[in-house]
């Protein structure tokens, strides 16, 4: 019970990061790699938000009257993650554009069949 209380969010975040990393390392298809990147990014965002959480804190938004003195969670990681999500979708769209061009050039997205991408 206390274990769950302490670690449930961390397990979720780092589970996503490790699964995304495994997808990037083990899969051969470029679109699968991009899906892995997006999963990893979600995990990192989740971890940053979980770090900023304060027990029994409320969302960092003041009501119309008062609200002074209430405990609020840390707003800085939330602002950073907001930035990271928007940048992330732009970067992934760019990667997908490159994948589409590669498919036009080689006729496949399998990394074993594209010589320059083999490792």
């Amino acid at each position: 019970m206390t274990f769950l209380n302490e670690y449930a969010f961390y397990i979720g975040a780092f589970g996503l990061i490790l699964i995304g990393l495994l997808t990037i390392l083990l899969r051969h298809h470029l679109i699968k790699l991009i899906i892995g990147l997006s999963i990893m990014e979600t995990g990192i965002n989740l971890f940053l938000i979980a770090i900023g959480y304060i027990s029994r804190g409320t969302a960092p938004i003041f009501p119309v009257d008062g609200g002074a003195g209430t405990v609020m969670v840390d707003p800085v990681p939330q602002a950073l993650v907001l930035t990271a999500i928007v940048i992330g979708v732009a970067v992934l769209a760019m990667a997908l554009g490159m994948a589409i061009r590669l498919h036009g050039h080689y006729g496949t997205l399998d990394m074993r069949r594209i010589k320059e991408l083999k490792w």
Binding site: I54, P60, I61, F62, M72, V73, P75, V76, Q78
Partner: peptide, 24 residues
């Protein structure tokens, strides 16, 4: 158990400094 001083500074002064009710 987050105890970032930057975050608590923004929460305490953000509404007066910028006038926005949403601290984010």
């Amino acid at each position: 158990g987050n105890s970032s001083r930057l975050g608590s500074h923004f929460v305490e002064n953000g509404r007066e400094d910028t006038g926005a009710a949403n601290i984010v």
